[in-house]
Amino acid sequence: MNKNDKIKLTKEQREDMISEIKEYFYNERDEELGDLASSKILDFIIDKLSLEFYNQGVYDSYQYMTRSIDDLLSIQKF
């Protein structure tokens, strides 16, 4: 994933995430956000932060696969 790749969400996923943002701000900060403000926050997260989450997922997968390969080698018969 390079910086020009953008996470693509379905309409339903986007609506669910916007709803989650609105609920978070209401419950944690006692602020009522509208759809536009919540949408802007979601866009910021996708544009500025998602690459870090993606890269962490890739690294975690790499570590898991490395451990799995080491486990596979342990069943060799001599």
Rank of each mutant, 00 (worst) to 15 (best):
F25R: 05
I45L: 15
Y26R: 13
E20V: 07
L36M: 13
Y54Q: 08
M1T: 06
D71C: 07
D47W: 01
I21F: 06
E15C: 00
D60I: 06
T66R: 15
K3A: 06
M1I: 08
L36Q: 15
K11H: 07
L33Q: 05
F25D: 04
I21Q: 05
E12K: 13
K3L: 05
S50V: 01
K11T: 11
Y26L: 14
E52Y: 14
I7W: 03
S39E: 14
T10Y: 03
K8I: 11
E12N: 09
L51C: 00
S74L: 14
L51I: 12
D47H: 04
Y62P: 00
L72C: 08
D43K: 11
I41R: 02
N27K: 15
E20D: 14
L36F: 12
Q56C: 04
Y64L: 13
R67T: 09
E23M: 09
K48T: 07
T66D: 14
L73V: 05
E52S: 10
D16S: 12
L33V: 04
L42C: 05
D60F: 08
D35H: 09
I45P: 02
D47S: 10
G34Q: 03
N2T: 08
L49H: 08
S39C: 02
F25A: 06
D35A: 09
Y59N: 09
I41M: 07
D60C: 05
D43C: 03
R67P: 01
E32L: 12
L51P: 03
S19P: 00
A37E: 15
T66V: 14
E12G: 02
K3Q: 06
S19V: 01
D60Q: 11
Y59T: 10
R67L: 13
D35G: 08
Q13Y: 03
D30H: 10
E31A: 06
G34I: 03
I75D: 08
M17A: 13
V58G: 03
R67A: 13
L51D: 13
Y24A: 11
I45G: 09
